[in-house]
Design a protein around this nucleic acid. Structure first.
Lengths: 352, 352
DNA sequence: TAATCTGTTGCAAACGTTTGCCGAAAACGG
DNA sequence: CCGTTTTCGGCAAACGTTTGCAACAGATTA
């Protein structure tokens, strides 16, 4: 009776060797049955598969990783799992990766660039690549890290680095144009965290669009991308005298909405607010938030594909995903129009 | 000149062997420097550490896993990452695990018990244990799977299995008592998904509490735990004539809130609504949701600890975490009381 | 019929660690 | 100063795979 090693659960650990013995072939044949089926006789193959199935054999990924150098794992690093912007992306990436037989490590940096770098380092040797989501590091740091592990960046553009971005510049332009169309002439941009590429893009696009229309745009910030920061900014927003606000993300916009409500400032009667992301909650608050919808799920899937194809060629494509302005109830006509004016009336007014 | 193997990034893969050669010791000494430092002379140790640092050596976890049988990874399986109940738990578990030098695979079952079982199987050989969050499988299935991999269950009680539960029964009792105290005599429980242990606990506790007070409790469901289901149930809720509603979770409660608002049913004027979970959005909607706060972050940390200690002894502890009723604005006096009655007045009335 | 090719399998050397065992040297006790 | 213990470090065998190479049989070609 052969000595079987028991694993910690007290069951027999069945290896390639057991399958080989039971089906009367060499272990290499068993190995090939799984990793290069076309190299083994169909008859033998089915016999091996049958005994493997019967014995409950599962390939040991550590052993496989050791020799092939591919772990079949990928890392996904986000700023804050609890920020509702990320879960749909995580979910999509995870599901997509699993379909390709990859598993996903998810890690959270708490918006801290130092933690971010450490995490990449820690994960580097254990994954085939990392998806860096809205990184807060500098471009230089990222350049350094990409030498240790294949990287795909989401929501940031760095020359020479494969990236998936949601076209937040275009989104910001639509949002600002929407506010201008409604007759607002003085706008505020509630700026997001320092180090965010997205934040720079939005500010630039919003500024350019406002300037082109001869409107004024005041930038407030930087802020942490959370509701509390949006709420805290309410006073400053009102102090500017602006009537239209674009926020870095929906959380901040919602926080602002709440604070304005608490101060009995009518929205959109006195101030119009636009968010970015279209998180689930933006439909749940009242007034419902006008916002720029980001295709986060598509971005997650695209990023996984880019990462897995990266080895094949030296291509460093950059994908730019389209964003959509979703108009809800937090935006309305500017202050010098009759409060009840419809969009059509406003459009007519503006054209005059 | 020795031949160095290059990894896919084109940099040299530095192994224990390189460190050994560079510091003039045997590889076993290098190994021990990292995995059993007390067995090596402090002087040698620091020399090895220095060269390791200088060469940029990182232990290969696959090789380590292969020989020790421990991967230093854990799996975390949740029903739906996009359900805001889970992210705080995931985040806490991940951070806590990382502090103990473990990495976390996160996977999503889409509320499907079949996917759930497959995921456990797929992850089993690649992790040291799995955290099963609010599983939808049957007890038997879970019993079967625990033989393949150490398991800790969250939000479910199965005899003999280590578990962390949030005391949702107690939460439901507080919630129902709160509604009864406000003078509501006919309540509805908006039931959650089939297969949810939590759902059974809530229903049982709510039913018992209502019965003990001689009040009526109608159970509606099962439902998917999403806002749409809560909204869709609005008609049925009103049809029962009940004035107090307890929902399986906040998402459903919020959905219901929206639908009632659309029908111009005043909340809490005509109907009071209580949720469970205390997700971030429950504070953002208007009226703000009265709900049972679950200590999800604490649960995540506790579960990680249990899983990592599990090997040490055969203990299968079950931790029961306290929940808290958070009273906000979605609950108010029952219909036969003056609409503006304060809580104190209500209490007085009920006592009479 | 000999030479070549093709398809299938076995052999054995890796991959980068950990760890039980053993010997050498140092420290200790009497 | 001798015997015993302790500390330290080397040796080599694992762990479960993959994969280049070689062997062999049968089919194909010239």
């Amino acid at each position: 009776m052969p000595v079987e090693t028991l694993n910690e659960e007290g069951t027999v650990a069945v290896t390639i060797r057991d399958v080989a013995r039971a089906s009367g072939v060499h272990i290499s044949t068993v190995s090939r049955t799984f990793s290069a089926p076309h190299l083994v006789n169909p008859e033998t193959r089915s016999r091996v598969l049958a005994t493997a199935e019967q014995l409950g054999y599962r390939p040991n990924r550590a052993a496989r990783a050791l020799i092939t150098g591919r772990t079949h794992n990928i890392g996904l690093i986000v700023a804050d799992i609890a920020n509702p912007f990320f879960p749909p992306l995580i979910k999509a990436a995870e599901t997509h990766a699993r379909r390709r037989d990859y598993h996903v490590f998810v890690a959270d940096t708490d918006e801290d660039p130092i933690v971010e770098a450490e995490l990449v380092q820690a994960l580097a040797k254990q994954v085939d690549g990392i998806l860096l989501c809205s990184p807060r590091m500098t471009d230089d740091q990222i350049e350094l890290l990409r030498r240790e592990v294949p990287l795909v960046v989401i929501n940031r553009m760095i020359t020479g680095l494969p990236a998936v971005v949601m076209d937040v510049g275009q989104g910001a332009r639509s949002a600002v144009r929407h506010l201008l169309d409604l007759g607002h002439r003085h706008l505020v941009y509630l700026s997001g965290p320092r180090g965010s590429w997205t934040n720079r893009e939005i500010r630039r696009a919003a500024g350019a669009t406002a300037r082109a229309a001869g409107a004024e745009l005041t930038v407030l910030g930087p802020h942490q991308p959370v509701t509390a920061a949006g709420a805290a900014a309410a006073g400053a927003v009102l102090a500017t005298g602006a009537t239209g606000v674009l926020a870095y993300n929906d959380l901040m916009a919602i926080g602002l909405l709440q604070a304005l409500q608490d101060r009995h400032v009518p929205v959109p009667g006195q101030v119009s607010v636009v968010g970015i992301d279209d998180i689930a909650a933006s439909e749940l608050v009242r007034p419902q938030l006008t916002t720029v919808a980001n295709p986060t799920a598509a971005a997650g899937r695209a990023a996984v594909d880019m990462l897995l194809q990266q080895g094949d060629d030296g291509s460093t494509a950059q994908i730019n995903l389209h964003t959509d302005l979703v108009i809800r109830n937090s935006t309305g006509p500017g202050p010098f129009l009759p409060a009840g004016a419809t969009t059509a009336e406003v459009a007519a007014y503006v054209k005059e």
